[in-house]
Simulated assay, not measured.
Amino acid sequence: MRLILALVAAAVVVAPAMAAETFSDPKALVTAIYDDYQPGKLAGDPTLYYSTKLKGIFDQSIENQVFASDAAMTGAEFKPASVFNPFLPDVSALLFDVAIGEATVIDDRAVINVSYHNFDQPRLVTIAMVREDGNWKVDDVASLGREDHWLLSWALMYDPTGF
């Protein structure tokens, strides 16, 4: 019983530490994001990588029930954890040819392009980052390929149709 309690206590300490992982390099941040989408891994909550500004926009969209109509249309219960994932906006995932570009950095801002094929669909996203307290965080995401075009922050604030 003590062993079980010790394991549970260790999990409680380790889980927040993993969630608070820091990145001193923009490419390391983007690489960590897409490592979550490899076969056999469960992708975590994408908001863990968000900057303070993007988290605020996301939280406001939850408060404004931006995603609630999606659940209402299907009859499902709305759960904030099941909302749009900008790093992999498809419902199903089987990624091939993931290519993470080099970061363009100016002061405390950076941009990286990521391309991949999900099943047979090519995708191209641009991830804008900001350095907060010495660590890189995602500040916005844009979809720029053949598929639907969107800018995450704009869609969370202004898009009446949602995703």
Score class of each variant (00 low, 15 high):
Glu102Gly: 10
Ser82Gln: 14
Asp70Pro: 01
Ser51Arg: 01
Asp148Gly: 10
Asp159Trp: 03
Ile100Leu: 10
Ala81Arg: 13
Val13Ile: 15
Leu152Val: 02
His117Thr: 05
Gly101Lys: 07
Asn64Val: 00
Lys53Tyr: 08
Phe96Glu: 06
Gly101Phe: 04
Ser82Asn: 14
Thr161Ala: 15
Val141Lys: 00
Ala32Asn: 08
Asp35Ser: 14
Val111Leu: 11
Ser24His: 08
Leu48Asp: 05
Leu48Ser: 10
Phe23Leu: 00
Thr74Arg: 09
Leu5His: 08
Trp150Gly: 06
Ala93Glu: 07
Leu29Thr: 04
Arg146Pro: 03
Ile106Asn: 14
Thr22Ser: 14
Thr31Asp: 12
Phe67Ala: 05
Ala9Val: 09
Ala76Thr: 06
Ala155Pro: 05
Asn135Glu: 14
Gln38Ser: 13
Asp133Trp: 04
Ala99Lys: 15
Ala11Cys: 10
Leu124Glu: 05
Ala43Tyr: 04
Gln60Leu: 13
Trp154Leu: 12
Leu151Met: 11
Met18Asn: 09
Ala28His: 04
Ala72Pro: 01
Leu5Arg: 10
Tyr158Arg: 14
Asn113Leu: 02
Ile127Asp: 00
Phe87Arg: 00
Phe163Thr: 08
Ser92Phe: 12
Ile33Leu: 08
His117Asn: 14
Gly145Ser: 06
Val30Asn: 02
Arg146Leu: 04
Ala15Leu: 12
Ser24Gly: 13
Arg131Cys: 08
Met129Asn: 02
Ala10Tyr: 00
Ala68Met: 06
Gly44Phe: 11
Val130Thr: 15
Val12Arg: 07
Tyr49Phe: 15
Leu7Asn: 06
Val130Lys: 02
Phe96Cys: 03
Phe84Gln: 01
Phe119Val: 10
Tyr116Glu: 01
Ile33Trp: 08
Tyr158Leu: 14
Val83Leu: 00
Leu3Gly: 11
Gln38Gly: 11
Gly44Ala: 13
Lys53Phe: 09
Asp148Asn: 09
Leu152Ser: 01
Asp45Gln: 10
Asp45Ala: 12
Ile127Trp: 06
Tyr116His: 04
Thr161Tyr: 13
Asp159Cys: 10
Ser69Asp: 07
Ala142Arg: 10
Asp59Met: 03
Ala28Thr: 02
Ala11Ile: 01
Gly56Trp: 05
Leu156Ser: 02
Pro86Asn: 04
Tyr158Trp: 13
Thr47Lys: 13
Phe84Asp: 04
Ala17Leu: 15
Lys79His: 06
Asp139Ala: 09
Leu5Ser: 08
Ala155Asn: 15
Pro46Arg: 05
Gly134Arg: 10
Val91Gln: 12
Phe119Cys: 07
Val114Thr: 11
Leu156Phe: 05
Phe23Asn: 03
Ala9Ile: 04
Phe163Arg: 10
Ala71Asp: 02
Val111Arg: 13
Pro46Cys: 07
Phe23Met: 02
His117Gln: 13
Gly40Thr: 04
Val8His: 00
Val83Trp: 06
Met18Tyr: 11
Val30Tyr: 06
Ala93Asn: 09
Leu151Glu: 06
His117Tyr: 15
Val111Thr: 15
Lys137Met: 11
Val114Gly: 04
Arg123Gln: 10
